[in-house]
Design a protein around this nucleic acid. Structure first.
Lengths: 224, 224
DNA sequence: ACATCTATTTATAACTC
DNA sequence: TGAGTTATAAATAGATG
């Protein structure tokens, strides 16, 4: 788990597997001993490797015997209860992994569309985008506009209008002058009335570039 | 182990211990399963906690039984061999910790003396330093001088002398103009002949400040 | 094969809700 | 209490000697 995220599967390369085995066995035994010390519980670990004739154990054979005998003394019924526990453990892990997958996909998609958006700002056409892409792009643009508006509101409160000092732009956020022109929901508004050109000359560079430079054609073919 | 490096000892706070137990048990079982998967070995872990009536195990009671029976089948003699293994494990860890301790002490000492050195450069006297401190301080100064010389050599090679462009100083290293005056081992030289003032007017700011501002008295009382 | 180093991932202590 | 978050320590994959 470093230098590269390792795939959780049998390592086919023999020497790599052995190296990993040694490192991880050491780490594992350390973990058992720590758990035992920190929480004052009885615990043991047994590992059979093809590299040693005897199993490698913690906390030594005697301790292992003690823990084992305690385990063996349990009725079968109770023992199998833990089987569920084990299954639950795996299930939980699967559920969690799925959750992560979902999040990651969403994040990827957002990054993808951000890339597309920036390309649009530097001359890319959007004729070849599919409906789904256009939809997400629109959403993304609106998100950005919302951010900008928030920022504008913030700056208005900070700096009284007559002062009009140039704001410092925090890194990572798009910069925009505080010109006091409201743009609330422009994208959605425009979606609903694509033909209605306000002609206000407000000069929002981002949005102007967005539909001036290209054959902009979100027609009824796309929005029936 | 985070937010704070935790001391490896029984956690007295009950709720903290339980929280730690849950987290670490989970981590431990994950580790066993990973080791088993990645390296294709049989392994098991058993943990008895006061928090559950049954032991928590990996890889489920049946798997544990298998591993245990394999372990039990071994003759006593061979089992106890692993006892040594366990001892060796601990011994190795102790040796390693000692090694780390030594390194850390050295590092600490160096930082300490670096601090003193900088204090000297901004007006601190050295009358109250002990022999050992003075010795180490001297060593440190020499190290720095050596670094500076290396840098000078490097810059000489990079920039031909007639060009004399001002060098960019890498962060963390003391800055010094490339004036071509050799200073090899000045500290040791001077140690051997403290009275011999070269009077070259070379203007090494660091060293000048070092013995001009204070009652500099490394006499024969200190160097017999 | 083994120890060491470094970049990165993983585990997790303390915090928050 | 327990689940989720964050900052930091620990584990470790891959490289190197």
């Amino acid at each position: 788990m470093t230098r590269k995220k390792v795939k959780l599967a049998f390592i086919t390369n023999d020497s790599a597997r052995k190296a990993t085995y040694k490192k991880r066995k050491k780490g594992l035994l350390k973990k058992v001993s720590e758990l035992s010390t920190l929480c004052g519980v009885d615990a043991c670990a047994i590992v059979y490797s093809p590299y040693e004739s005897e199993p490698e154990v913690w906390p030594g054979p005697v301790g292992v015997q003690l823990v084992i005998s305690r385990f063996k003394r349990m009725p079968e019924m109770e023992q199998s209860k833990k089987m569920v526990n084990q299954e639950g453990f795996i299930k939980h892990r699967i559920a969690k992994a799925n959750e992560q997958l979902r999040k990651q996909c969403k994040e990827n998609r957002e990054k993808e569309m951000t890339e597309v958006m920036y390309q649009c700002l530097t001359g890319r056409g959007i004729q070849d985008l599919m409906m789904a892409d256009l939809h997400d792009l629109g959403w993304l643009v609106d998100q950005n506009v919302k951010k900008i508006e928030k920022r504008i509101e913030f700056l208005k409160k900070m700096a009284p209008p007559q002062q009009a000092k140039p704001p410092t732009t925090p890194p990572g956020e798009p910069s925009m002058p505080v010109d006091g022109i409201p743009r609330t929901g422009w994208f959605n508004q425009w979606m609903n009335n694509p033909g209605q050109n306000k002609g206000s000359g407000s000069g929002n560079e981002m949005t102007m570039k967005f539909h001036e430079n290209h054959n902009f054609m979100w027609s009824s073919a796309f929005f029936p």
